[in-house]
Simulated assay, not measured.
Amino acid sequence: MCGIAGIQLRDEKLIPQLGSLMHEMVDGIVVRGPDSAGVAIYGDRELLPEEYSSVSLLDAPGDTRQRVAERLSHDADVSVENMSDTTFIRAKMPSDQLVALVREIVPEASVIGAGDDSVIYKGVGNPMDLRETYRLSDVTGWQGVLHTRLATESAVSAAGAHPYSVNGLSVVHNGSFANHATIRRDLEEKGLTFDSENDTEVASRYISYRMQQLGEDLQTAVEALSEEFDGFYTLLVTTEDSFAVVRDQYACKPAIIAEHPDWVAMASEFQAIAHLPGMEDAEIFEPGPGKVYTWKR
């Protein structure tokens, strides 16, 4: 049992309120996952100005700041900050270059997210405390995702926290996949590598592979996942321009969607999104079994 919540803003006037809206969302899903929590934020120009990119790490050594500063030039304007278990690095360069450099500089750390428009934090602890550590109420942007976890198939660890992010795509997941090991082996044979044993990482790398290597859009890639992955699940998948929701064919994991002219949101519990502005005018519905719902910025 885990908690999921996310929102995509359509009205630019709401961008400064993203963090405060997400801060309240935690109240509605913390009961579903007290062990750990993660967030993905898209479009926060304070955290990630134009021409900057980010990479988020777990298990980064204590001298990461020094190692990075010694390798990158002053023009890169590098900053390194610890956010719970996550070490967040920002620099003025494309994300692929930053990731390659960071992997070389601190090879013992695990990359859990990177992008030109997205920021990932993951950590162990009570989500109510972690939202303060992440300074969630202060963030801005056009899209955000939350996950609170109750570990059932792996240890309580930051590595097991969601979201799982690849190339700016993030997946949060309530449920489990029965055949994730088989799909992992298929992807490894195609040359993909994994940073954890978690089944959600398999889903994120599967979707990313189909989009990056096969040229599919998010809707098509998630539909393929729905056909190939067995299990009971609700997924929220986000990219740097899209937001998608899918449930398994039996739809046994809870999910509610609310769509408003100014925003679209989903959550495991309605109470997580009940506070959103204009909710009385929103279309509220339960996503159908096996159906993929996609919104694009």
Rank of each mutant, 00 (worst) to 15 (best):
Y206W: 14
D217R: 02
Q219G: 03
N198M: 10
E216G: 01
S204C: 14
Q212V: 12
Q213Y: 10
D217S: 07
E216T: 08
D195I: 01
L218N: 02
R210L: 15
L192P: 06
T193D: 14
D217E: 13
R205I: 10
L192V: 11
L192T: 05
A203E: 12
F194E: 06
E197F: 04
D195R: 12
G191N: 13
Y206F: 15
Y206G: 04
I207G: 01
T193F: 12
E201V: 07
Y206Q: 06
R210I: 03
M211V: 07
Q213R: 14
G215L: 08
T200V: 07
N198P: 00
Y206A: 08
A203S: 15
D195Q: 13
N198A: 13
D195E: 13
E197K: 05
A221R: 03
G191Y: 09
I207F: 02
V202C: 06
V202Q: 03
E216N: 08
L218M: 10
E197H: 07
E197V: 04
L218R: 01
T193G: 09
E197C: 05
Q219W: 00
T193Y: 11
Y209N: 10
F194R: 03
E216F: 06
E216W: 07
Q213E: 15
D195H: 11
Y206V: 03
R210V: 06
D217A: 02
M211I: 10
G215M: 08
S208Q: 09
R205W: 04
